[in-house]
Amino acid sequence: MLELRLTRAGLLKKVLESIRDLVTDANFDCAATGCSLQAMDSSRVAMLSLLLRPDGFEHYRCDRNISMGMNLANMARMLRCASDDDTVTINADDAQDKISDYEMKLMHITSENLEIPEAGYEAIVKMPASLFARICKDLGTIGDTVMISVTKEGIQFFTRGDIRTANIFCRKTTPVAKEKEAISIEMEKPVSLTLALRYLISFTKATPLAKQVTISMSYGRPIVVEYKMEIMDHIRFYLVPKVEE
């Protein structure tokens, strides 16, 4: 028996909106410890991992581990019927009485989980999620790739396109800066990676879920763009950097 109830459907809608450009079908792996999802995009250069903690739900019951294969576009269509403050219940067993009842077909998706080491990034930047989204969107109108460089002074975004170049530098803020505006940097050594902007722009669809975004970078590893949700844990996006030839 699996029963998840959330009194704010809007949260689930936002989560779904942030991932459905990247992935069409995915397994929601539900266990007593929470509901997680890991999926790669079709080109296998980007990946996302999502964790929804049990205490983020008003009701969370999961008697046995269950993997729900869902078509995300269909799920989004279903959720569009719910207002942001409506209650949404997901049952993977017999449903109980309720005011409205939507049923969705589950699908069998074969997927292999990747083991992702979390620690040991050379540079970790925390910055306002809206600022990161704005930069990616703006640079996306100029170039296809962005070079992100982190030094102890700040984070730099550089792109080059047909109409020339753009360069945005965000300086680290002082510790007294407001949380909303703060830019903090933890760094072992300077890192510079080149990334496809269209994926980064797609990741920023998660901006409504969190005030701050955490960007973790190391040479020779995928960049991690993480949004920490207030009550639901996190959503992380991974992107393999471009390699210069």
Binding site: M40, V45, M47, E112, P117, T194, Y238, K242, V243, E245
Partner: peptide, 14 residues
Amino acid sequence: LKSQARMVRFFRFS
């Protein structure tokens, strides 16, 4: 800026 290695190269399957 051609090659973009695949995700599986970086993480192990569990």
